[in-house]
C-alpha cells in the first residue's frame, strides 16, 4: 500500500540537504590533517598543526577570555532570565506583563550590529576602559532572551498543580521554589544556560566592535587569522572548536531531554 504521507524525492532531497549541511564542516576537518604549510595543497597526513595550535599562546589567551566572558555572562543572564520567567509565567496580575516580555526579548528584535554600535557608543561616552568588563556587560544583556525562552517554555509546559500542591502542604513560597519549581524546571534552566553560553562563546559582531587590547575573544582571534589567509593551523583550530561544540551540544541535548518523571 502506498503511504500518502510520503512524497517521492523528499527523502533524497533531505539526504542531500544533510550532506550540504555537513560537507563544509567535514572539509575543514579533513584539511586540518594536511601536512603542507599551504592549506590548499595536500601533501600528507599530519597532526603537527594541532600541536602548533595547542602551543599558540595568543589562541589560548583568546580561549580563556571567551570562557571567562561566557561563564560570567551565562550566570548573570540565566539568573535574570529565571527570575523574569517566574514572574511573567506564574505571577498573577503582573502590571506591564506584555511590555516586560518584549523588554526581556528586546535583543532578539534587533540586528546585533545595532546593539553592538549602541554599547560601543555608550561605553565610549561613560569612559569605560576595562575591555573584559565591557564584554561581560554586553554579553549578559544579549544572552538574556536566549536563557529566557527555554525557561519560559518549561514553566509554561508545567501545570501549576505541583506548586499549588506544595503550598497546600505547608511549603512557603521559597520552599516551593527550591523543592518543587526549580527541580521540575531544571532541564529548561539548563538548556537556557547552555544556549546563553554558546551564544556568548560564538559572538563575533559585538566582541569585534568592542575589541581592545587584552579582550580578544576566540571568534575575533580566528577572524584575524582568516583575514591573514587560510592555513592548516586555522583548520586545526576550527576542528578543535567543532569538537568542543559537539561535546557541548551532545551533553546539553542529553541532559535537556532526560525526563525527570522517569526515574
Amino acid at each position: 500500500m502506498r503511504d500518502v504521507r510520503r512524497y517521492p524525492g523528499a527523502r533524497i532531497f533531505t539526504a542531500l540537504f544533510f550532506l550540504w549541511l555537513y560537507l563544509p564542516i567535514l572539509v575543514v576537518i579533513a584539511y586540518s590533517f594536511n601536512e603542507n604549510r599551504l592549506a590548499s595543497v595536500w601533501t600528507g597526513f599530519s597532526l603537527r598543526w594541532y600541536e602548533s595550535a595547542l602551543h599558540n599562546r595568543a589562541l589560548l589567551d583568546a580561549v580563556q577570555i571567551s570562557l571567562t566572558v561566557a561563564g560570567i555572562a551565562t550566570a548573570i543572564a540565566t539568573t535574570v532570565a529565571l527570575m523574569a520567567a517566574l514572574v511573567l509565567v506564574r505571577g498573577r496580575d503582573v502590571r506591564l506583563r506584555r511590555l516586560s516580555e518584549t523588554v526581556v526579548n528586546l535583543p532578539l528584535l534587533l540586528p546585533e550590529i545595532v546593539l553592538a554600535v549602541a554599547v560601543l557608543i555608550l561605553f565610549s561616552q561613560i569612559g569605560l576602559q576595562n575591555g573584559l568588563l565591557k564584554l561581560v556587560i554586553a554579553h549578559s544583556a544579549f544572552c538574556i532572551p536566549f536563557a529566557f525562552l527555554p525557561i519560559r517554555a518549561r514553566l509554561q509546559g508545567m501545570e501549576p498543580d505541583f506548586e499549588e500542591a506544595a503550598q497546600d502542604l505547608y511549603a512557603s513560597p521559597w520552599v516551593t521554589f527550591r523543592r518543587v519549581t526549580l527541580p521540575l524546571i531544571a532541564p529548561g534552566v539548563f538548556a537556557g544556560a547552555m544556549l546563553a553560553f554558546v551564544i556568548s562563546m560564538d559572538d563575533f559582531i559585538t566582541s569585534n566592535l568592542l575589541n581592545s587590547g587584552g579582550s580578544t575573544t576566540l571568534p575575533v582571534y580566528i577572524f584575524g587569522l582568516i583575514k591573514q589567509g587560510t592555513t592548516p593551523e586555522l583548520n586545526a583550530i576550527s576542528t578543535l572548536i567543532v569538537l568542543g561544540s559537539l561535546i557541548l551540544a551532545t551533553t546539553a541535548l542529553v541532559l535537556t531531554f532526560r525526563n525527570p518523571n522517569r526515574a
Binding site: 575543514v28 561544540s245 551540544a249
Partner: peptide
Amino acid sequence: VYLVTLPFWVSMIVRVYAWIIILGNDGV
C-alpha cells in the same frame, strides 16, 4: 533533529570559514 541542530552549535565563524575553503581560489 539532533543532526539538524548540531551545526547551529558550531561556531558561526568556523562555518563561514569553511565556505572560504570550498569557494576560494584553489578551493574544493
